[in-house]
Design a protein around this nucleic acid. Structure first.
Lengths: 123, 123
DNA sequence: CTTGCCTCTGACGTCAGCGTCAGGTTTTAG
DNA sequence: CTAAAACCTGACGCTGACGTCAGAGGCAAG
């Protein structure tokens, strides 16, 4: 398929797809006239890239790790890298959970005091 | 205390503290000569700001929500905002968990196949 | 054949959360 | 009193993941 279709099927902009190629995250064949051609598997690939971006990984890390995730180019060093990224994600999750709980507490207190007295005193 | 001490006590740079003030996240009294003066409570405040930044909230949202979180300025609209942010954090947590699990699967497969055959085939 | 949409390659713009430098004042230590 | 350290206000720089515009070529339909 061409780049426009891949964009609509993944919900990612054309510009972003070209950017992914620039960052060596997503290869493409070229038609004789120079237009990009993608196989169907590119849809999954793009979604994987999105997921890793959403996890906070920068392009460079994704580029390093994709060969392992997709093809299984597993050197001990890459496996170590993967573990490190997973641990970073884990600690980010911890941060988010504590932030969410804090907001939860505030929300509970605020709604309770809203119903009674128009004002709450926290902390 | 002055800005330098607040910086060392919170682990946040002086520049960042001035930026927080610029974004209306952190107020300060001024000495006659114009230097910023902070109460002890500013330490907690800064750590709260950090926590909300870590949760992915932009300055503007934090500025809107801080009055509620700190003083309990609880209007129904603010409470709704808080709930919305909490829900966004929740879905971010979901994204991170699935990304982490995916990396976990890859790591497990890669280490197993590394021990046996030098290569793995995933997906 | 031409109209209209898709695609191409640069290349500059944007936004957030600061870093950093300049040039000047204030506070503190000796 | 003086030198060093801390502070002040601009203001420009930086990074990443794109948005956007310019100018030009490609391609199916009527």
């Amino acid at each position: 398929m061409r780049i426009g279709e891949l964009a609509t099927r993944t919900g990612v902009s054309v510009r972003a797809l070209r950017y992914y190629e620039e960052q060596n995250l997503l290869a493409s064949e070229r038609s004789p006239s120079g237009q990009r051609q993608y196989p169907d598997s590119a849809v999954d690939r793009v979604q994987l890239i999105q997921q890793l971006y959403a996890a906070g990984l920068p392009s460079k890390s994704i580029a390093d790790l994709l060969p392992c995730v997709v093809n299984g180019e597993a050197t001990p060093e890459l496996i170590h890298r993967l573990s490190a990224e997973r641990d970073r994600i884990d600690s980010r999750i911890g941060d988010l959970v504590s932030a969410r709980d804090r907001l939860g507490t505030v929300i509970a207190a605020a709604t309770a005091n809203w119903r009674t007295g128009q004002h709450c005193r926290l902390q």
